[in-house]
């Protein structure tokens, strides 16, 4: 049976991990590759690299970093952040990433989803959706969560899937950074509307939060802080999930 996935997010700027990382036994805790290796050794199923400066600065993601990650780890990873050019996406895949994700640009140019999935494959095309609950519904936000598009998140999810997205990475802006749990209502609404895998993001603070996300229909659950700070390892969370009837890779 297909296992539910535990996914670590690494925010990157200038080729370095952003946010405080305090791990012993890591020579260079700001090095994404060292951190990725640590996560893999602790049972992580997948990694997501977000170039947080790229949207603002229009900088290209360093292909060198992608190459290094690909040559040193042997689990899947996704790369995104400010991508707009199909050629750049192809080159990221070519350099070793398994999937790319786009967010703002896909909202502004939905037709690009078809071009991307035609070229690199549907399974490799992830659409990231940042949603905020406001006035009784979930709106899609762009530009790193700073701009409300007025677009309904569930409708956008459905459209992205129909255009060829192979997976959705759904972040609740309300929950993000709170460590008080994923936005279960958002996950239920999105997973109920599409027939492609959905990754929950934003709000994970404890193992029970992951259980809630999976019970809400998510296929994977992503977190950053709890892994960065070493509060829980992927294996800790998976053991808890297994005890609670969720199929995981242990």
């Amino acid at each position: 049976m297909l296992a539910k996935r535990i996914i670590a997010a690494l925010d990157i700027a200038g080729g370095r991990v952003v946010k405080g990382v305090n791990f012993e036994n890591i020579k260079d805790s700001g090095d994404p590759v060292e951190l990725a290796k640590r996560y893999v050794s602790e049972g992580m199923d997948e990694l997501v690299f977000l170039d947080i400066k790229a949207t603002v600065d229009k900088r290209k993601i360093l292909s060198e970093l992608v190459k290094r990650v690909a040559s040193e780890i042997s689990i899947p990873f996704t790369v995104g952040g400010g991508l707009t050019e199909l050629d750049d996406m192809v080159s990221i895949i070519r350099n070793g990433a398994d999937k790319i994700f786009i967010n703002t640009y896909a909202v502004q140019h939905p037709e690009i989803i078809e071009s991307i999935s035609d070229r690199i494959g549907t399974a490799n095309t992830v659409i990231a959706i940042d949603a905020m609950f406001r006035d009784g519904k979930y709106n899609v936000y762009i530009n790193g969560g700073s701009k409300d598009t007025g677009l309904d998140a569930v409708q956008w999810a459905r459209k992205a899937a129909s255009l060829g997205a192979g997976e959705l990475l759904v972040t609740s802006i309300n929950a993000d950074g709170t460590m008080k749990g994923y936005d279960v209502n958002l996950l239920k609404a999105i997973t109920g509307a599409v027939n492609i895998p959905v990754i929950a993001s934003g709000g994970a603070g404890k193992p029970a939060d992951f259980l809630d996300a999976f019970n809400a229909g998510a296929d994977g659950a992503l977190a950053a802080s709890i892994f960065h700070r070493g509060i829980y390892s992927a294996t800790d969370i998976k053991k808890y999930l297994m005890e609670n009837g969720i199929n995981v890779r242990l």
Partner: peptide, 10 residues
Amino acid sequence: VKTPHMGWNQ
């Protein structure tokens, strides 16, 4: 079934 089939399976 959800398509693509994505993730770790036995």
